[in-house]
Design a binder for these strands. Structure first.
Lengths: 363, 363
DNA sequence: TCATGGTCTGAATCACTAC
DNA sequence: AGTAGTGATTCAGACCATG
């Protein structure tokens, strides 16, 4: 069976049909980046009156949830047919579609191993201030069934993460700059190209050299590019000729690495900052607590939302610890963490010591 | 209807029945931490051969996905009955159940606003090294329907995050130490007690002072404790008397934030509107006064009826401060309050400061 | 060559009121 | 119910022009 499987090539056509035609149990890993069913309506403008270039391609339009569910069930079922019994499936999505994908793959008998959060270091903001900034996407990693003996490169993942177990949240930047494929006019070639760093971690964690990776929504071929670099075999399925042509050109330029395990990794473990508000949420400081500068010349009161309120001869000042510290001193700027102190057993300590406690909790 | 709703108390019993009996459209926010359907089989052992004290309660056992789905549909539907049209729902879960919860709530007509990742700073490691360390849980935030005018404390969230808009990933520690409720023998009283910091952020972002928060899986009452502290009204539903008793004792000890004004959040959106003409009526600006943009590239004259007149290479423009500001810049829109400035002692100030004076005069 | 400042952009379910 | 008017709203990072 194995040698019948043509790898390292793109099949152009409908992925459900093409996967059903593949030999059963021939693929080690499926990575799928299906349409998200975003249901966007109308234009979104930035505050500077420019238009956001959103996803409005035909392939992301579905009549309703029922239609999307049928589509999802079909391709997940066909993908299951191609998978070896010990193979695993990856799917990436957002809150628009990921719940439906997850529930359907559970119904089909897949066994969820992890849900993984791609925490974007540079997401698009929420321009209208109506929701939390949507700063992540979700991947589901699942084995073909509950009892399958799937592969997981535990040690490699730990090494990638400074000798700490790799967690289920990955902080990685978007695909921008030189990595982003563009057409002749400089426009992005594909609206949802994924960063190679994401596929690197997916393939390093769940495949071995020479394993076969199938991507039924190949797009511009990020999966193939990273698979080739890591000496995995790959099969891409893509409906649109334009994307397939771009992917072929792209992958042709990729060079394989001699020893994948020696690859240098961009592990951007950027520690999230600690906002002052966290100290209140976590009970280190209560709303109403008084803060002082070191010599007790200035005094401010903590509010529930993490701002301070204080008064001096110029009037009342409300805002961040930094802004109020600056205003009270009549200075253009101030580091509130070292300026403001809290009282403990009669003596004053800078609020920075509380921040250090929060950071140390995080390891 | 409002005064019929008994708040700040725990109802002991089945949440589906009790929610159905509540008056329709009476609750501002539902926060739910339902059973996760963990499907643990057998005991999990640490490397040092001690047993992990996992969730092994009767209430977390369901025969199959179908049974869990029916349960989920029932309580989500009953919760929808209690919600005001502009109310919102929060649900927390893990990959065991969150896909089913998310898909079902979408099917019921809820409209997902965000999925939120609770990124645990101190998660339990994966002891067997067979998966990624499960270091997060997922919350879904949804409005009752697509068109509802839900409440979101955008400015408060931004303030909590040092003046950057709050993202969809929240890094917070587990509930441990003194915050964790324990029984007489020192055992944790509830296996899945959530940290108060998590509820703080949930309630600060989506409720106002005196709003009603309903928690149908109340457990040991974290939602009630934080709601009381933040001066929100709360209703808890809990099936087990033991948990309800512990929750009552716990909440009785909670102190409300002493000064309600510390809980106030300010938002430009909720300020009363002031027509520009009011500034002229009240003598803040005289007809004939010249207004400028910040760099003095544009100039306009105030007319007695509260409109402006200005000229540029495209011709003469008359109309509101916004229309004329937009026309002068060749933009589709413009906020005239911040664009136009008046001269005072040689320096320019935005006319917005005059609007603020009018608002503060009115209290 | 380096520092600085302006511009552009990324899977986005992104306003509300009065007439 | 549809339309028009008011006026609220963005973060990180790459790239480019300028000094």
């Amino acid at each position: 069976m194995r040698d019948k499987l043509a790898t390292n090539r793109i099949l152009v056509g409908d992925c459900v049909q093409l996967m059903r035609d593949m030999p059963a149990g021939s693929v080690d890993v499926v990575f799928a980046d299906p349409p998200y069913n975003l249901q966007l309506s109308g234009d979104l403008m930035r505050p500077n009156h420019t238009r956001v270039d959103g996803v409005d391609e035909d392939w992301d339009r579905f009549q309703d949830f029922q239609t999307y569910d049928r589509f999802t069930r079909d391709w997940l079922d066909a993908a299951r047919h191609t998978l070896k019994d010990d193979g695993t499936l990856w799917v990436i999505g957002s809150y628009h579609n990921i719940f439906r994908v997850g529930a359907i793959l559970q119904d089909l008998g897949y066994w969820v191993l992890n849900d993984i959060i791609w925490r974007k270091s540079n997401p698009m903001p929420n321009f209208k201030g109506r929701r939390f900034a949507n700063a992540h996407e979700t991947l589901i990693w699942a084995s073909k069934s509950k009892d399958s003996k799937y592969y997981f490169a535990y040690e490699a993942m730990k090494a990638l993460n400074e000798d700490l177990q790799m967690r289920s949240d990955w902080t990685l930047p978007l695909c921008t700059g030189g990595e982003r494929l563009r057409d002749e006019t400089g426009q992005k070639a594909h609206p949802t190209q994924k960063p190679e760093s994401l596929l690197f971690r997916v393939l390093m964690s769940s495949t071995k050299v020479d394993d076969v990776v199938l991507d039924p929504f190949f797009g511009t071929g990020t999966t193939g590019a990273v698979a080739k670099r890591l000496r995995r075999r790959w099969i891409g399925i893509e409906r649109e000729h334009t994307y397939a042509r771009l992917a072929n050109e792209r992958i042709a330029q990729v060079e394989e690495v001699a020893e994948p395990e020696l690859l240098e990794v961009t592990s951007k473990r950027t520690q999230p900052r600690v906002p002052f508000g966290n100290l209140i949420e976590r009970g280190y400081l209560k709303p109403g607590t008084m803060l002082f500068d070191q010599r007790r010349r200035h005094i401010a009161k903590v509010r529930a939302d993490g701002t301070l309120v204080a008064q001096n001869h110029l009037g009342e000042h409300k805002g961040s610890i930094h802004k109020v510290g600056a205003a009270m001193q009549g200075l253009p700027a101030c580091n509130g963490w070292t300026f403001w102190h809290f009282q403990q057993d009669g003596s004053l300590s800078p609020i920075d010591v509380l921040r250090q406690q929060v950071i140390s909790e995080r390891h």
